[in-house]
Every structure is written in C-alpha cells, then in structure tokens.
C-alpha cells in the first residue's frame, strides 16, 4: 500500500510546488523534516526505553496468569463455542490481559498460540471459525489500560500532561470493542 502512496505523495508535491512556484520552500522543507525525524527519534529513545523496561518487569512476574481469572465470565460470553476447550480459553485470556497491560510483545505470541489451538477444532480448516473471528476483532480493537507508546511520545513532545489521554483512550477503546463485538456477532449469524 505504502509502496504506491509514498511515491505518489512525493511526486505530486514536487509537481505542485513547481506549478505554484514553491520549489524553494519544498527544498528547505524536506531537509528540515528529515532533521526533525532524527531529533525526535533521539527523544523517543529515552521514554520508550523507560516504558519497555518497566513493562518487561511486569512480563517476568505472574501477574498475567493471575489476572486471567478475572476475565473468565467475559470469555464465556464472547466465546460460547469453546465450552470444553480450556487450553484455548486460557490462551485467549492471557492474550487479552497482555493487551490490556500494554504488553504488545507478549500479547502477539500468546495470540498466535490461541489461534493454533482454535484451528485444531475448526471444522473448516480454510475458513475462520466464529471464535477465531471474535478473537481477531478483539485484538484489532486494542483494549489497553496504559497506552505506553503514546504517552512516551507525548512526553517527548513536551506535553504538559502526557497521561491526560488515558481516560479518553479507555472510553474510545471500549466503544470500539463493543462495536467490533456487535458487528462480529452479526456476521457470525449472517455469513456461514
């Protein structure tokens, strides 16, 4: 996708600059943009390393396993077809908890494992099962307690209150998840 969009953006900008006589601005613009990218990356280094370090401490504790119990009723409701498949339910809960804690690196491997477990009892091997659809949609909705990367970038950009987005993020992410779950349930009913 970006292989098409990126050159189009650049070519159109240069052509437009030539027509509107802004070629000097573009000349300066591209070099200062690249300079900005370097400076920003250096400021990101500090904050992103800080959060990743903290999150690694969490990853090495038993917090993820412990919190999976809290999700039981929710997992029962969202995955009615996995009644007897305890392994799948456990893996799904662990993936969800890792996502909620903002442990993206831990969530993906757990999620892939859950997919493989669900595939074992999938009657049509080339088609997504109902449970798989629900699981993937939940993962694309990104339910997060602490959006660490965004907070890190906000503080790098000298925000006065980098964490002020936490509550808006919670509300928005829950709304997104509810819409996702609703649409998935709809598709499950309509598309066989």
């Amino acid at each position: 996708m970006l292989n098409i969009l990126w050159p189009i953006f650049i070519l159109l900008s240069f052509i437009y600059a030539l027509i509107s006589g802004k070629i000097n601005e573009v000349n300066n613009g591209i070099f200062s943009s690249v300079q900005d990218a370097v400076e920003l990356s250096i400021t990101f280094l500090g904050t992103i390393c800080l959060w990743n370090g903290l999150m690694e401490i969490v990853k090495r504790t038993t917090l993820i396993e412990k919190l999976t119990k809290v999700l039981r009723p929710l997992v029962h409701f969202l995955f009615p077809e996995l009644k007897k498949n305890e392994t799948a339910k456990q893996e799904i809960s662990m993936n969800m908890i890792a996502n909620i804690l903002g442990l993206g690196n831990a969530a993906t491997p757990l999620g892939l494992k859950a997919m493989k477990t669900m595939q074992k009892e999938n009657p049509k091997k080339d088609t997504l099962s109902n449970s798989m659809m629900m699981f993937i949609v939940l993962n694309t909705a990104s339910i997060q307690l602490i959006p660490t990367n965004v907070i890190a970038i906000r503080s790098s950009l000298n925000s006065q209150n980098p964490t002020s987005i936490i509550i808006p993020v919670w509300i928005a992410t829950i709304i997104a998840a509810i819409v996702g779950v609703f649409c998935t349930k709809l598709i499950i009913k309509k598309v066989k």
Partner: peptide, 23 residues
C-alpha cells in the same frame, strides 16, 4: 493471525474490524 493457521476465507472480518476502528 490468519496466516499463522493458513486460513484464506475470512468471512468479512475486515468489515467488523474496520467498523470498530471508525467507531
């Protein structure tokens, strides 16, 4: 998530996921 289990038919999951994004 679909490629890890070699699934090709995704039953319009993209629509549900994009609806969640827009929401």
């Amino acid at each position: 998530y679909t490629s890890v289990v070699g699934i090709k038919k995704t039953r319009g999951i993209l629509a549900a996921a994009l609806a969640a994004d827009v929401a």
